[in-house]
């Protein structure tokens, strides 16, 4: 496997959950993300923030090859996961997506029962253990068990918005991923439901690496350990670039770049 010499060396002990090396994503001719070099810490919450259209979601979706499903998209550079560049031709994106799960902006439970919503992913991935136990564990981990344990056969769509989003998280962790990507998971929720999701993320971070895209600066400050700030390239090409990356605490109190400070303090974006 060819690794560009200027990239940070892959940590053989798995200190980093994901490392990118000159990651660029194109939609047809348009370069949406340019030359991202990012190392995501294991079992930490990393927030990706930045103004609209700066490629935050595109970067997130590049981590589990969801961009492959977008017609006309292409990816350059490398994304290392478990010591393997997931864009190597012999890597199956289906397997990547099982190990790197995803929670979307809008809660999207299947039009199936709550039980089947959680069990389906495990079932298709060949889970042969105690399914009832797995469903219960996943719902408990998603802090939803107490609310739904008596109505597991009801449709997942009958739940409230916040419950649906936690169901989607339960569904994601039921396939036992290493990493959970969250694309603005609380943007459609009210403040209380948002708080519950944030608490849940803190709990999950003990077991999983979590990467969250958010528009909400307070949310990034509250939940994340590390923050990556993206912004548009200053040459007018509208390509998204990684501007600053580091400990959340440091970035929100003492950012290195002026543009980061301007964004965080709400002067643009």
């Amino acid at each position: 496997m060819a690794i560009a010499t200027e990239s940070p060396p892959t940590d053989a002990t798995g200190q980093y959950a994901i490392e990118t090396n000159s990651l660029s994503v194109y939609y047809n001719e348009f370069q949406a993300v340019r030359d991202v070099n990012l190392s995501i810490e294991t079992r930490r919450i990393t927030a990706i923030i930045g103004p609209s259209g700066c490629g935050k979601s595109t970067v997130l979706r590049a981590f589990n090859r969801m961009n492959d499903l977008v017609p006309g998209s292409s990816t350059q550079g490398e994304v290392f996961f478990a010591g393997q560049n997931i864009y190597e031709p012999d890597v199956d994106p289906v397997e990547v997506r099982r190990r790197i799960g995803m929670v979307f902006q809008k809660a999207n439970p299947f039009p199936k029962s709550i039980y089947d919503n959680v069990a389906w992913g495990a079932r298709i991935n060949g889970f042969r253990g105690d399914m009832d136990q797995l469903v219960e564990d996943s719902l408990r981990n998603a802090a939803l068990w107490e609310e739904v344990k008596d109505k597991l056969d009801q449709s997942g769509l009958s739940l409230s918005g916040g419950q649906q989003q936690r169901l989607c998280i339960a569904r994601a962790i039921a396939v036992r991923p290493d990493i959970i990507l969250m694309d603005e998971p609380a943007s459609a929720l009210d403040p209380i439901a948002t708080l519950r999701i944030e608490e849940l993320m803190r709990d999950l971070a003990q077991q999983y690496t979590i990467i969250i895209v958010t528009h909400n600066m307070q949310q990034a400050a509250r939940v994340s350990d590390f923050t990556a700030f993206f912004s548009l390239a200053e040459d007018g090409s509208r390509a998204g670039m990684l501007m600053e990356y580091g400990l959340t605490q440091k970035m929100f109190t003492n950012p290195e770049h002026k543009i980061t400070e301007e964004y965080i303090t709400g002067r643009f974006g």
Binding site: R97, M102, F104, P109, P111, W120, I124, A172
Partner: peptide, 27 residues
């Protein structure tokens, strides 16, 4: 059939056919 359903399915590590058979066709 909403794309969010396909995304949810692919995001769990479903193949294209599993997505079509379990989510797209019933919808």
């Amino acid at each position: 059939v909403p794309n969010s359903l396909r995304n949810a399915s692919y995001g769990l590590g479903a193949t294209r056919w599993q997505t079509i058979w379990n989510h797209v066709l019933p919808g």
